[in-house]
Write a protein that binds this DNA or RNA. Structure first.
Lengths: 192, 192
DNA sequence: CTTGCATGAAAGCAGGCACTTGCTTATCCT
DNA sequence: AGGATAAGCAAGTGCCTGCTTTCATGCAAG
């Protein structure tokens, strides 16, 4: 059944571009190269289709990993940050649309199990491990450091393309700079 | 001419709630308690009305200040951060909607002169002053620190209500924690 | 008092919307 | 061969959309 897949993919794409109201069944059908009635025969209604599309193809399908045993904290975190950032950028249209419509269509974005929460869990666990190994200062709140890193990655990924003046260097350089600034605040001083 | 003001205010409100497509002229007229034809007689078209509404009543009307001469850096920055955060939260529906539609209706959100850019300027100038006074480590990139603080404030303001699990303490406590973590990274060590 | 002028009320227009119906065609299983 | 299943096609339903037109009303300036 490849046709459902084609429809779902077309639906997320159009939804990400123009939102719920803009994603007309005609336009989705055209993008999927499928007759419009097929949408209704397969999914019943436009909202059911978009709901399934966002859930299946959308925001819940990828979380970069961090090693369970820290190798090189800076390198580990930089790799993770870049992967997480790239994921956010790839999903940017969809995330923006969901953000803009989450108050009107809250059912389309279930709060749990999103990429955001999984990412937070991954990062927080890693930082806790660092802290228990004594590599992180004992007096830093790991959840605050987690929120700062995910927060700045999110803000950069969402804002860079529309407010380029806010960001002075290119994205990879900026991310490394964010990370280094954060590490300077949280890393325990090297002990001999 | 109080009627224009009423229409504009109603227009931003509805636009923030339901976006461009959802903001029908009938609904705006009802919210403004005005006849629908009046919208067209006053503004010509729906898009002209929304354009003017967002520009006049919208995103470009407030920027918290920082003292030109630093008094107490932590206190100054905390006050500014809280004010900036509250401003973001107050404009949250509008910001979210604009973000979600900026690719489809780029003309409604002119990149320059937004609150975001003004805020960045204010903060960056203050931090530069701190640095030139020797209160900030000389080797930190002020623009990176600026981006981090505005970024995490933005991410928190946009995400806290829909992903509450991401944020563990209340907003005021979190903001102070962000700031303290950042200050630990950038402040010069106290010299006797 | 009259003459503009801004607004309201009501109706309507053409187009787009989600969705349905009736029918034809193609594919596959037995 | 024959029957079930899934898809395409064309047409049409009723509702909503931005926008227009026509006419009646209030109100301030001359």
């Amino acid at each position: 059944m490849e046709i459902r897949e084609r429809i779902l993919r077309a639906a997320v794409k159009i939804y990400g571009e123009v939102g719920f109201r803009g994603a007309t069944t005609r336009r989705i059908a055209e993008e999927a190269e499928v007759n419009e009635v097929t949408l209704f025969r397969q999914f019943g209604s436009k909202s059911a289709l978009l709901h399934e599309a966002v859930h299946a193809t959308g925001l819940f399908n990828y979380t970069p990993q961090l090693p369970e045993v820290p190798v090189d904290p800076r390198a580990d975190l930089l790799t993770w940050s870049l992967a997480h950032y790239d994921d956010l950028v790839a999903k940017r249209p969809l995330i923006r649309t969901c953000l803009g419509e989450c108050e009107e269509h809250p059912e389309i974005l279930p709060p749990a199990e999103t990429t955001a929460l999984k990412s937070k869990g991954t990062l927080q666990a890693y930082l806790s491990t660092l802290q228990s190994l004594g590599l992180l200062r004992a007096d830093v709140d790991v959840s605050v450091a987690t929120a700062m890193l995910t927060g700045i990655l999110f803000a950069d990924a969402m804002g860079r393309d529309i407010l380029p003046d806010l960001f002075q260097s290119d994205d990879r350089t900026s991310i490394a700079a964010y990370l280094d600034l954060l590490l300077r605040a949280v890393m325990a001083p090297e002990s001999p």
